[in-house]
Structures are given as C-alpha cells and as structure tokens.
Amino acid sequence: MAAHLDPAAERRALDRLLAREMGDIQPVEGAPELLESLSGSPWAIVTSGARDFVEARFAATGLALPAVQVYGSDVHQAKPAPDCFALAASRLGVPASECLVVEDAPAGIQAAVAAGCIAVGLTTTHTEEALGQARVCVASLADVQSLLTGYGFGGGRL
C-alpha cells in the first residue's frame, strides 16, 4: 500500500516507538485471571506477531507465556489460512476439533474455523457481525473465563 516507504526503516521506527512504550504496558483486563485459570491445562498462543516482540510484551506485563507458542514465522501461510492453528493443535497433541480458539480479528476467526477449531469471537476490536463465523462472541476476557468455567473446561461442549 505504501510502496514509497522502506519496510526496514519503518520496522525500525515502529520498534523504537514500541520500546518507548514498554514501561507503560499493562495486561489486558481479565488476562491475568484467565491465564491463572488455565494453569495446569494445555494452552497455546497463536499470533502473527514476531517472537521477540511478543516475548517482550508478555515479560513487561508479568504474564507467563505457555509452553506452546506459534508465531507468524513458524508457518508458510498466515491467518486467515488455518496453518497456525493446525500447528498449535499438533504441538498440544490434541485434535483441532478439541481446541477452543479465542480471537479478536476476522482473519483469526476464519483461520480457526478452517482448522476445525471451536472459535470464540472477542468483540474488543471488531463487532460481532465482523466475527460472524465464531461459534459464540463475548465482550471480555472475563467472559471467556466464565464461558470456560460454565462449560467445565475440557469436559463441556459449545
């Protein structure tokens, strides 16, 4: 879209801006509680973000990353292709159909559904209509935690 810009220079500028903000980063509301509730359960992070960036952001918030991590560089085709979620399911050692994916973007929902996962739309950045392929939509991470609890995480079905 901006062919006149140098991607490497723009990446360096973005990295400088993000580094300045690192000290002010706070976890998303409900994230610490949700991640604590997952303690002892297999879960993964699947992101198009760069490994170094994601690791730094999690460290800045004091949140622990899961053992299974899938980054954009780990797959040949990014979201909305299903590759990232298929890889995460494989690394978790479970069928994709048993994976619940929480996504806030249409491309992520599309990728999760294409991989055969159960998709939950988080309406913090897009509308429920935009996340229309999701099995269910929720407004917050606290709602995700309630959903998992209500369905007996691991035993219930959506």
Rank of each mutant, 00 (worst) to 15 (best):
C84R: 11
L87Q: 02
G93W: 14
V120G: 07
A81L: 05
G108H: 11
D104M: 09
A81T: 05
F85K: 08
A88M: 10
A89M: 08
G116I: 00
L63N: 08
F85D: 07
S140Q: 03
C117T: 05
P82A: 09
G108P: 07
P95C: 13
T124H: 10
D74R: 13
G132K: 12
A96R: 05
A111R: 00
A88C: 10
A130F: 02
V102K: 07
V70R: 02
A89H: 11
G121E: 12
A96N: 08
E98M: 08
A78W: 13
L100C: 13
L122I: 10
V70N: 00
G72H: 10
L65P: 06
G93Y: 13
V75Q: 03
E98R: 15
T123F: 12
Q77W: 10
T125A: 15
S90T: 14
A105K: 09
L122F: 06
S140W: 03
A119E: 13
T127F: 01
A78M: 11
L63A: 08
D74L: 09
L63E: 08
G132Q: 12
V94M: 01
A88Y: 12
L63T: 06
L100I: 14
I109F: 09
S73I: 02
V138I: 06
G116Y: 00
S73A: 15
G116N: 06
Q69Y: 02
V120H: 10
D83I: 06
P80W: 09
A134D: 06
H126K: 04
A88F: 12
V101C: 04
L122G: 07
G121R: 12
V102F: 07
Q69K: 15
E128I: 01
G108R: 10
A67R: 15
E128M: 01
A88N: 07
Y71C: 07
L87P: 00
G72V: 09
L63C: 06
A89L: 09
I109H: 12
A114S: 11
V75C: 01
L122N: 11
A81W: 12
Q77Y: 14
D83Q: 10
S97N: 11
P82V: 11
A130V: 00
A112K: 12
V102G: 06
D74V: 12
V101D: 00
A96C: 14
S73M: 05
Y71S: 05
T127W: 03
T127D: 05
Q69M: 15
L87N: 01
C84Q: 14
A78K: 14
V70A: 02
S140F: 04
S140G: 04
H76W: 03
V136G: 03
I109K: 09
G121T: 10
L100Q: 02
G132F: 04
P66D: 10
E98L: 11
Q77P: 00
A130W: 00
V75H: 03
A88E: 09
S140C: 06
A64L: 10
G116W: 04
S73N: 05
A64S: 15
P66T: 03
E98P: 01
E98I: 01
R91A: 00
G72L: 11
V138D: 03
P80D: 09
V70G: 01
I109M: 13
A64M: 02
T127C: 07
Q69G: 02
A96T: 14
G132R: 13
T124V: 14
F85R: 08
L92K: 02
P106T: 04
Y71F: 15
V68M: 08
G132L: 01
V120N: 05
L87K: 04
P95S: 12
V68P: 11
